[in-house]
Design a protein around this nucleic acid. Structure first.
Lengths: 143, 143
DNA sequence: AACATTTAAGACCTTCTTTATCCGATTTTT
DNA sequence: AAAAATCGGATAAAGAAGGTCTTAAATGTT
């Protein structure tokens, strides 16, 4: 099934929340999880992954929490998804050159290759700066 | 995970096999499954689904088997995938207008919407006539 | 120094989906 | 009537997804 996992969806929401308040101090996991409607223990774990990959910084202890480790304009949607889900391959035959024994014969391989390239490009051109700006605009229209 | 299921992959192989021999009579499930390296009982079940949706015709009894029910140029990759996997939604929030309670606020929704449109368009422009032609060409280069 | 708060890390569990297999029933040809 | 195929449903094993819990470690507050 071609569907984004909940884990990645949650991670995106978390990153978006931090992006919208990037000037502020670290935010506690409870605050983020409540605001974004995500199970807090689960989100904590996802943030740990994002911390390891250098997308967020964590601060332990009282008053601690998480904050972006980069400028939102330097974080793309694709990066966050792949941090959580691992590398995206639309089809197993794309995992690496020569992985699929049917490559020489199979005409569908090329189709997937092209589809994947376009798909990843698109997601990689979407930064959290853009998303945050868009979120602020939506918020304004609503209020 | 954004990955094609094995079931859909198998169905595509089966349809491709039939497309390459579309002028011939019905082919037995054993022949197709061996040629395409797919478990025959599994492929049989997939073909049943494809038969229900009108992509193949089945012939019971001795000498029976399956044959395309349409011209390969009128069958697209997307149709076969969706017959096996159900409708494709890159993200739950796209399942239908108003499904996602966060639509008003969430800026990522629009990104997915656009990505999905491009993705489906691409797959829907790929017919089995094209695939079969491409397969024949590859076969020739090899032999 | 003791305590409360908060993340870190990993074990664990439950549920759902995927990927099949098997078997008896049905249909068709010979 | 016998043989060859698909039909259709039950079932099972394996893996992934989604989430909880617990203990440890770090930090700030009293």
């Amino acid at each position: 099934m071609f569907r984004l996992s909940r884990a990645a969806e949650y991670a995106i929401r978390g990153m978006l929340h931090l992006s919208c308040k990037s000037d502020s101090e670290a935010l506690g996991i409870e605050e983020v999880s409540k605001a974004q409607d995500v199970p807090s223990a689960y989100l904590a774990k996802l943030f740990q992954l994002l911390a390891k990959k250098g997308y967020v910084r964590s601060f332990r202890g009282a008053g601690g929490g998480f904050a972006l480790a980069k400028n939102p304009k330097d974080i793309t949607l694709l990066e966050i998804i792949e941090t959580i889900e691992g590398r995206i391959f639309l089809n197993d035959c794309l995992i690496r050159e020569g992985y699929c024994p049917r490559d020489n014969v199979c005409p569908v391989h090329d189709v997937w290759n092209e589809a994947q390239k376009k798909f990843l490009d698109y997601l990689n051109n979407c930064t959290f700066e853009q998303l945050a700006a868009s979120a602020r605009k939506k918020q304004k229209q609503k209020g």
